Deep mutational scan, measured.
Amino acid sequence: AREMGVIAAMRDGFGFIKCVDRDVRMFFHFSEILDGNQLHIADEVEFTVVPDMLSAQRNHAIRIKKLPKGTV
């Protein structure tokens, strides 16, 4: 199932999404941004959540798609 959120932080090559449906900041890597979009803080996005290979306690966001403002 796809989830929605807002870009909360951007770093060098990765960032975090503030999720709508869960009280966490979800890690993502820039390589998972679809359509070659440039994302910025406060952009609204949808994404798929998958378990982190390195840590069973953590998840991360993949297949991130920018949404029109006002969607979330």
Rank of each mutant, 00 (worst) to 15 (best):
Q57C: 09
F30L: 07
F14E: 08
F16P: 00
R11Q: 15
I7D: 02
N37T: 12
R58G: 13
I62M: 07
Q57W: 10
S55T: 13
L67F: 01
R58C: 09
R25N: 15
G36D: 09
G70T: 02
S55G: 10
V49R: 07
I64C: 01
V45T: 04
G13E: 03
R11Y: 15
F28V: 03
K18D: 14
G36I: 06
E3H: 11
M26V: 15
G36Y: 05
I17W: 00
K69H: 15
I7V: 14
F14R: 03
Q38H: 14
R63I: 04
S55C: 14
A56P: 13
D21N: 10
V49W: 02
F27W: 12
Q38E: 14
A8L: 11
R58A: 13
T48E: 11
N37D: 12
M4C: 12
K65Q: 09
E46Q: 05
K69L: 06
V72W: 02
M10V: 14
E3M: 12
I17D: 01
P68D: 07
D12A: 08
L67Q: 01
F28G: 00
F16L: 10
F14W: 13
P51E: 13
I33V: 12
G15I: 01
I7Y: 02
I7N: 02
I64D: 03
R25C: 09
R58N: 14
H40C: 13
D35F: 08
M26D: 00
A1L: 09
L54M: 15
N59I: 06
R25H: 14
F47R: 00
E44P: 04
V24N: 13
E3T: 08
A61W: 05
T71Y: 04
I41T: 10
G13Y: 04
G15Q: 04
R22C: 04
F27M: 14
F14H: 15
R11A: 15
G36M: 08
L34Q: 11
V50Q: 11
F27K: 14
L34A: 12
D52S: 11
V50I: 10
M53I: 15
Q38A: 12
R63E: 09
N59W: 08
N37Q: 15
F14V: 09
F27C: 09
G36S: 07
E46S: 09
G5C: 10
R11W: 08
F16T: 10
A8Q: 13
D43F: 05
K69N: 11
V45R: 02
G15A: 03
V49D: 00
G36C: 07
D35A: 06
I41Y: 02
A8I: 14
L54G: 13
A8Y: 04
R25Q: 15
S55A: 08
F16K: 02
V49G: 04
L34G: 08
I62Q: 04
R22L: 06
R22V: 04
G36N: 08
E32S: 11
F27G: 06
L34F: 04
I33N: 02
F47I: 01
S31F: 06
V45G: 01
I33C: 07
A8H: 13
E3V: 06
G13N: 13
S55R: 14
K69V: 08
G70E: 06
R25K: 14
A56G: 13
N59M: 11
A42M: 08
H60Q: 10
G70D: 05
L54V: 12
E44H: 03
Q57T: 11
F16C: 08
K66W: 03
Q57S: 12
E46L: 00
R25V: 10
D12E: 14
E44T: 03
V49Y: 05
E3A: 08
A61N: 07
R22F: 02
E44S: 05
L34M: 13
F30E: 12
M26W: 08
I7R: 01
L34N: 06
L54R: 13
E46P: 04
H40D: 10
V45F: 00
V45L: 02
H40K: 11
V49C: 10
A1I: 05
M53Y: 14
V72K: 05
D21F: 01
D43S: 01
D43K: 00
I7E: 00
N59K: 12
Q57F: 10
V50D: 06
V45I: 06
I7A: 02
I7F: 04
F27N: 04
E44I: 04
A42V: 01
H29D: 14
M53V: 12
D12I: 07
F16M: 10
E3I: 10
L34K: 09
R58E: 09
D23Y: 05
P51Q: 13
D35C: 04
R63C: 13
M26S: 03
H40M: 14
H40E: 14
A61C: 12
G36F: 06
E32R: 03
E3P: 04
I64N: 01
V6F: 04
V49L: 07
A56N: 04
L39K: 05
R11G: 13
V72T: 08
H60K: 15
E3K: 08
H60S: 08
A42D: 12
D52A: 11
G70K: 07
A56Y: 14
D21M: 09
F30Q: 13
M4P: 01
G15K: 02
A42T: 11
G70N: 03
K65I: 06
E44D: 06
I17P: 03
F14T: 07
P68Q: 09
A42C: 14
D21R: 10
